[in-house]
């Protein structure tokens, strides 16, 4: 997928030429050479080509869509941007649904919680801090928390624990979340299959220790040592960057 990121008066837009669709939110597309291509409003009507003042600045050809998703969440926070939200929804809701199904929910419950997750994305967009997490990581934690809450409510309809308070960022938190996210994704993709399998199982299997042992036929001690190896590699990948 080929993605472009362009900044126009603080607005960053999203351009996805890979799928043949262009999603832009009240913004101007501007290519190098100061050629203004056009602009769209937030329901996607094409309003251009407009010879707007060259306020935009070409930033970069991006291959990391996470960076742009972060900006879309900020657009939702800043001005309840439905166009930006629609892009986030189309990308993340179907993946959240898959994740929840792999974690043991049936399709109906996964659909419901995926919708709930995206509703939280809308409502909590202002709490999103791109210095802490990528869009994918933030949405992952929302889905995770909602899954735990739903499970809890089943047992005790009257208890609803609040999100735990955010702890302070460590002083050594030097990496930007975008860099961290990209590097972690890369490092996960590079793991040997047997380690990657154990890492992924931590996000899919209920009762991971015992379940991994049972489903993958790997003894608990091996599960733990493989995971330790995998995490050491991920740590090393992050340290390279710091």
């Amino acid at each position: 997928m080929f993605c472009l990121r362009v900044a126009v008066r603080g607005t960053v837009l999203w351009l996805n030429t890979g799928a043949g669709t262009i999603w832009i939110t009240r913004a101007v597309i501007q290519l190098p050479g100061a050629l203004v291509m056009g602009c769209m409003d937030d329901v996607g009507r094409f309003l251009a080509p407009l010879p707007l003042p060259l306020a935009g600045r070409w930033l970069a050809a991006m291959t990391d869509p996470a960076v742009d998703h972060a900006v879309l969440i900020q657009a939702v926070a800043a001005r309840a941007d439905r166009g930006a939200f629609a892009v986030l929804f189309r990308h993340f809701a179907p993946r959240v649904k898959t994740l929840l199904m792999r974690a043991g929910l049936d399709a109906g419950a996964a659909e419901e919680l995926a919708q709930e997750t995206m509703l939280s994305v809308w409502r909590k967009a202002a709490l999103f801090d791109p210095a802490r997490a990528t869009a994918a990581t933030w949405i992952f934690t929302i889905a995770r928390n909602l899954r735990i809450d739903a499970h809890r409510r089943e047992r005790h309809p009257d208890t609803l624990l609040p999100d735990p308070p955010e702890e302070p960022l460590g002083a050594d938190h030097l990496l930007s979340a975008g860099e961290r996210g990209a590097r972690v994704a890369e490092a996960v993709a590079d793991l040997p299959a047997e380690q990657a399998e154990i890492v992924r199982a931590a996000f899919f299997l209920d009762q991971p220790h015992a379940e991994i042992e049972r489903q993958l036929g790997v003894p608990l001690g091996t599960v733990k040592s493989r995971l330790r190896l995998a995490m050491a590699k991920l740590r090393a990948a992050l340290e390279d960057l710091a």
Binding site: A66, T98, I139, R180, A185, F203, R235
Partner: peptide
């Protein structure tokens, strides 16, 4: 870091 892995794993699904 583990949450970032979770995000990456989800993204790749």
């Amino acid at each position: 870091m583990a949450e970032a892995v979770g995000g990456a794993v989800m993204e790749a699904l």
